[in-house]
Amino acid sequence: MRIGELSERTGTPRRLLRYYEEQALIIPDRCANGYRAYDERLVDRVLQIRGLLDAGLPTRIIKRILPCLGKPRTIHFSDAIPPEMIATLENERDRMTERIRCLTRNRDAIAGYLDAVLTNDD
């Protein structure tokens, strides 16, 4: 498939797909005329990348864990995970947990403010 179809099927802008390619997160085939040809399996791969980015992982870490991922939500451990990778993932998990705490605190503060404002309007 061409980049436009991959973009439509994944909801990912073409420019972002090219960025994923620059980062070696996806690797399209090349046709004889030099055009990129995106394999069907890249639809799932792009969705995985987007999910990992949405979770807050940077592309440098995503690049390292992509080989362990099969279809979405499936993880394959082909060999031992290096200790530095475990430490990196633990740090990212802890960073996300702290962001969740902060977001929860902010959400609760906004909800409290809205409750106070809406109660005072009566």
Results as ranks from 00 to 15, higher is better:
Gln48Val: 15
Cys31Gln: 15
Pro58Val: 06
Ile81Tyr: 04
Leu52Cys: 02
Val43Ile: 15
Arg95Cys: 06
Gly34Thr: 08
Asn33Ala: 12
Thr59Met: 02
Phe77Thr: 06
Arg36Asp: 12
Glu40Asn: 08
Ala32Ile: 10
Arg99Glu: 15
Leu47Asp: 08
Arg73Gln: 13
Ile100Val: 15
Leu42Gly: 07
Val46Gln: 02
Arg107Val: 03
Gln48Met: 07
Leu66Glu: 00
Ile100Tyr: 12
Tyr38Asn: 06
Ile65Cys: 01
Leu89Ile: 01
Thr59Phe: 00
Arg36Phe: 08
Arg93Pro: 03
Asn91Asp: 15
Glu40Arg: 13
Ile62Asp: 01
Asp108Gln: 13
Ile49Leu: 01
Leu47Ile: 14
Asp39Lys: 12
Pro72Ser: 07
Arg60Trp: 03
Leu52Lys: 06
Glu90Leu: 09
Ile75Met: 12
Arg41Ala: 14
Arg105Cys: 08
Ala80Arg: 12
Glu40Tyr: 02
Leu69Asn: 08
Ile100Ala: 11
Leu103Val: 04
Arg36Gly: 08
Lys63Val: 02
Leu53Asn: 01
Val43Cys: 08
Ile62Trp: 00
Arg45Val: 05
Leu103Cys: 04
Cys102Asn: 13
Glu84Leu: 04
Arg50Ala: 09
Arg64His: 00
Arg64Tyr: 01
Met96Glu: 08
Ala37Asn: 14
Arg64Ala: 09
Asp44Arg: 05
Glu92Cys: 06
Pro82Asp: 14
Leu57Tyr: 00
Gly70Ile: 13
Ile86Trp: 09
Asp79Phe: 05
Ile86Tyr: 06
Pro82Trp: 05
Ala55Gln: 02
Ile75Pro: 01
Met96Tyr: 01
Arg73Asn: 14
Ser78Thr: 12
Pro67Asn: 08
Leu52Glu: 06
Val43Ser: 07
Glu98Pro: 01
Thr59Lys: 02
Leu89Trp: 06
Ala55Ile: 09
Asn91Cys: 09
Leu69Trp: 03
Arg95Gly: 04
Asp54Ser: 09
Glu40Leu: 06
Leu57Glu: 00
Leu66Ala: 03
Ile86Glu: 07
Arg101Asn: 08
Leu103Gln: 10
Leu66Thr: 05
Arg41Trp: 06
Asp108Met: 01
Met85Trp: 05
Lys63Cys: 04
Leu57Lys: 03
Ile75Phe: 13
Leu57Trp: 04
Leu52Thr: 09
Cys102Pro: 01
Asp54Arg: 11
Arg64Ile: 02
Asp54Lys: 10
Arg41Ser: 15
Cys102Thr: 15
Asp44Ala: 13
Cys102Arg: 14
Cys68Phe: 14
Ile86Ser: 11
Leu103Glu: 11
Ile61Thr: 13
Ile61Pro: 00
Arg107Gln: 12
Pro67Leu: 09
Leu103Met: 13
Glu98Ala: 15
Asn33Glu: 10
Leu52Val: 06
Met85Cys: 04
Gly51His: 05
Arg95Asn: 13
Thr104Phe: 03
Leu52His: 09
Asp44Glu: 14
Asp108Glu: 14
Ala32Tyr: 09
Arg95Met: 10
Gly56Asn: 08
Tyr38Thr: 05
Phe77Asp: 04
Glu98Trp: 05
Arg93Glu: 09
Ile65Gln: 01
His76Trp: 11
Arg93Tyr: 08
Pro83Thr: 00
Gly56His: 11
Gly56Thr: 07
Arg107Trp: 03
Leu52Ala: 07
Lys63Phe: 00
